[in-house]
Every structure is written in structure tokens, then in C-alpha cells.
Design a protein around this nucleic acid. Sequence first.
DNA 1: AATCTCATTTCAAACGATTGCATCATTAAA
DNA 2: TTTAATGATGCAATCGTTTGAAATGAGATT
Lengths: 331, 331
Amino acid sequence: MAIQQNTLKKLSELLGISISTVSRALKDHPDISVKTKARVKELASTLDYEPNNFAVQLRTQQSNVLGILVPTIRNYFYDFFISAVEEEAVKHGYSIMIMQSCDKLSLEISNINVLRRNKIMGLFVSISIETEDMTPFRKLQDSGVPVVFFDRVAEVSGFSKACLADEAAAQIAAKSIIEKGKKNVLALFGHPHLSITKLRYASFKNYFDLHSKDSNVTYFFPEQAEASRQLCSEIFKNKVPDSVFCMGDMILIGVMHAVHEAKLKVPEDISIIGISNGLIPTLYNPKITYVETSGFKLGQLAFKQMYASLKGNEEIEEVILESILVEGGSL
Amino acid sequence: MAIQQNTLKKLSELLGISISTVSRALKDHPDISVKTKARVKELASTLDYEPNNFAVQLRTQQSNVLGILVPTIRNYFYDFFISAVEEEAVKHGYSIMIMQSCDKLSLEISNINVLRRNKIMGLFVSISIETEDMTPFRKLQDSGVPVVFFDRVAEVSGFSKACLADEAAAQIAAKSIIEKGKKNVLALFGHPHLSITKLRYASFKNYFDLHSKDSNVTYFFPEQAEASRQLCSEIFKNKVPDSVFCMGDMILIGVMHAVHEAKLKVPEDISIIGISNGLIPTLYNPKITYVETSGFKLGQLAFKQMYASLKGNEEIEEVILESILVEGGSL
DNA sequence: AATCTCATTTCAAACGATTGCATCATTAAA
DNA sequence: TTTAATGATGCAATCGTTTGAAATGAGATT
């Protein structure tokens, strides 16, 4: 399998000069004569010589690899994020190593170890549902590897974070619902353990409590599409709310299944509003009104933070990506 | 930044024994006394010693990293594929490095170089639209790095390939349309340069030519959602076909936008059938009937092939993932 | 002729882990 | 008492690249 490499040694033997001369010649070191440089470079190019990265890395102790650790890649938000980070990383000479925690703490921890062993120079992470202890991330950061949290971030200080404007997004949604005069609201959120859920929930609830006390808002925390569908099916049997708020795409999908099953018309019978990365809400007819939280833009933002850290910026900052309302016809 | 590592040397100095003894002790080499092993291991664990991967890799010339090169990650098919490969890879001690070609040949080539320089031990690749020359992949493979093509595969032999049953899938769709008695078919495919398009198109057309000569089938090759929407909008103005076949999700999305705009009822006014990884067709009401081509399963299959190659299997094989019809209510 | 430049080139020591072989004791066997 | 065997440890080379310092040789200066 592993075919014999071209090495400086081989070139030096072929040319009858020392290894160091070859090395310097290839790097255009001023000490080396023009003739020698030419000879060396020619041979190097005919032999397709390429420095052995393993050796280079051993010397420099630098891998130029950045790690991304997410619950899953199978997600319209994360893959946009990853895509953006990859695009930026390539431009700056970094490569991307990806791992999934599958929302399991044990996998998350072992994957952090794999990434550390692989000598990543920085880590982007969206934590698993089970994560509570931030020690592994702290250790990584203390050992000189900057950590940037995104989406699902640690609820402790001392880390860089690239967040969606969770509170603002939930507020925008709440405001929109109130403005349309909806009073009977079903509000669906994700796993209550996550900071992102807590923020959105608190903000949404707070806005309603302040600005529309007479509204009747019911809160649930179904986790995925199927749970949402079942929940809504049950609810719709008794009384159909005049509006539904969906914290994420999967919840929206479940809700829409239930809406279709119950043959409800959007927005006549029921209004829908969500928070989304963008594609899913536009597939329905009418298109669902949603607060946009762009994974792609967040990826670019997170990379910027990471890059600053890699270049020596010691500051820990939280960046927040603004949300905008994208009007569909569902509200 | 780069904090000082614990090394064998450091341990050996702290313990007053030689580097080689420390190394052997940590690996439970039988030559080393029980006492020494205990001493070494204790210190190693209190200091969180971890072998320096750079050094290990230099000796072994093995990275245990697999590369994935795709046109984009922002795609419901590729992210399932990547996810599956990552899951399998982790189980077997490999890590995944990802790069995107953005369907540009130049980026594809430079990314292959980056991956090679990063000493990947194997490469999964779905080629860009512009790719014609397979030399870079051949070189990689000749240098001992197995290449497994998937989805968009090279139209030459000598490479391992993990394909969707493109021909079968198109055939299943054609057959379903014919069985429903549809005679006026609009068939939409992706970029005509890709082997995947050629196969699906040829198979679809062939099936119709053989089994339903009196059908009126129109073929187009719109590339993405918006092109499909515009195309359909125009077509629907003149005459609405009784059925539409969509080669992929993006085309389906465009078609459905046009269908909604034209206020056509599915399946009464128009029947729809597609080929898809799975999620998108299920979002519509009624759910779109589609031929399933699972990115996740394909990823598992591709990894199996890769693993065999990594373990020394020299055979070049093409694996095909079977397609199944998932009935929605759109046909 | 002796010294000094200067341009080139080579030596040798890193980086950190691994491993065949040599070197010690110590003890058992002759 | 000498030799051999055994157990435990250390030496030194290796992987391939880089780089400070030393060496070489030719030409210029005194």
C-alpha cells in the first residue's frame, strides 16, 4: 500500500549534495546559489516532491486543522454552518475535521479526545443535550486550543460564543403573533435542558406576559417532528389554537403534518410561525413565516472569532447574529 | 498559545529512568518490571501524558484520517452520507476530514492536494460538475490511497464506486407513471454532464420508449430549484402535463412552487414523482411519492468498501444501493 | 604570504516516539 | 570459581524536515 515517498534525502543523494542544501534551495534561501536552486527545483518538480507533512508537523507542532463537533451533521442548520466554516477555513489554509456526538455525552467526550489527539488547533462546538460539565472544553482551551461555541452554547463564561439572537428571535415571533391579534397560542420548544431553549422560551413567555396578558399561551417541549405531530394531533382534537409557534424546523415539520391531517387551512384556520435556517418553511404553501437564523452566516461569524483567537487575540467574546423576520403567508 | 506538552523525555527525567523504559512501561512491554511500570503509569496519569501524535505519525506514516470531497455539504443527501461515514469511521478509529469543491474544478484539484498533503489514508469523493480528468484521483490511488467514488462517480473503470441504483430508480419511477395511466409526462433532470444524470435519463427514456410508445414525454434539464420553478411556470401556462418526474430534491422544490403558484391540485390536476433521500417529499400534502436513494445507507456501504481497501483488499468493485418506492399520495 | 571577506555548502541537533541491540546486574548452573 | 542464563534497563538509530553554527574554498586586501 504505502508507496515510497520522495524525501529530501533521496533528492540530495540523486543530486550529490546535502539534505540541508536541498531543503534551503526549495525554500529559496538566499544562501543557496542560483544554479543549485535551479537543479534542485527541477528534480523536485519532475519527481513531484512534496514535503512530508508528518515531519513538518512534528517540527512545527502545528496541524492547521480545525475541529467541528456537532450533535449531528444531518441537520439543515449544522450543515450550513459547517459549509461556511469549511469555505472560510480553506481560504486561510486550514482544514476541517468533523465529529458527531449524536447527542450522547460519552461520544462527545471521546470525540473531544480524538480531536485533541489529532492536534486540532481550534474547536467549534455545539454541545450535546446531555452535556453539563464544561471541564473537557476548559482543559482544551487552557492547553492553547481556542474553543468557539455556537448554537447550543455553554452556559458559563470564559468561552467564545457565536450565538443566534435567540431572545430577539423569540421576541420577534411573539410580537408578530400579538400584532396579528392572535390570542390562543400554542408555543412549541425543543429540549428544555438546552440553553437555546431556555433563552427562547423565557424571552417568548416574557414578551407575552408583558405585552398581552389576556392571551392564552400553552407551552410544550416536544423534541422532534414525530413528537410534535402527535402532540398537535391530540390538541387539535379538542380545540384548535389560532396560532402555533415552532422553535425549530423539526417541530415545524411535525406541526404541519398534524395540520394537514386535521385538514386545517393556513392561515385561515390556524397561523404558523417558526424559527428556521431557511429552506423548510419555504416549501409549504403558503410559505411559513419565520424568523431567520442563518447557519451559514453564523459559520462565517464563528470562523472570524476563531481566526482572531488563532492569531493571538486573547479576548473572549460573545458574538450574536441578528435575526430577521421572513414573511411567508402563514400568519 | 501552544502550551508545553508532556513528553516521554519529561517523564523519564522526572523518574530518573531512560526514555525507552518509559515508552515500554506505558505499553506493558514484558521486559519492564512491575514496579517500574506502576511508577511510570502513575506519573503518566497524574500528568495526563498523551503520546504526541505528530511523532507517532512520523514513525508510522499513518494518519488514520479519511477524506471526503463533495460539491457541497449543504445538501440533504451529502450530509446523510457524511454522517454515516463519520459514524462508521469513528467506530474503526478513523477521523474524517471534509472539503467542498463548490462544483469548481480548480477548487476540487486544490482540495485534493490539501487532502493528500494531510496524508489522508483514503478518499470518498463525489465529483464536481466540471470534472473530466480523472488523473488526480488515479495518482492518489496509485500512491496507495484508496479512492471510493459515490453518487457522482467517474465514468471510467479502475475505481471503487458506491452508486445509487440510478437506472433502477429511474425505471421504477417510469414504471409507476405508466401504471397510473399517465401519458403526458414532464421529465426533469439535473446537469446533463453528470453520469448520474445520463444514467437516469437514459434509463427513464428507454423504459418509456419500450413500454409506452404512445406517451408524450418532454425532457428538460433545469439545474436547481429556481430554474425548475421558472420552467414549470412557463409550461403550465400552455398545457399542464398530467405528471412530472423530478430527478432530485431541488428540482422537486421548484416544481412544487410552480404547482402552488398555478393552484394545481396534487394529484388530481397533476401527478408528481421524484427521486430523493427522503425528507423533502414527505413535507408536502399529500406527501410526494418518491424513489428512495438513501445517503445514509450509501455512506455505510461506501465505508465498507473503503475499509476493505484499507485492510488490503485490492479488488476494485462497484457497489450499488437498491432503490425502493415510497408511496405518498402524489401519483 | 598571511589575513580577511564573502558566498556556498555541510554538519549536527533538534522535534517525540519507537525498537533492535547492547549492557548491566544478579542468580542459577557447571 | 567460572560460565551461562535471565531480567531489567539504557543506547542509539530511525522517521523527514528544519535551522543555527561551523566548515570550505575562492578571491580580495594588506
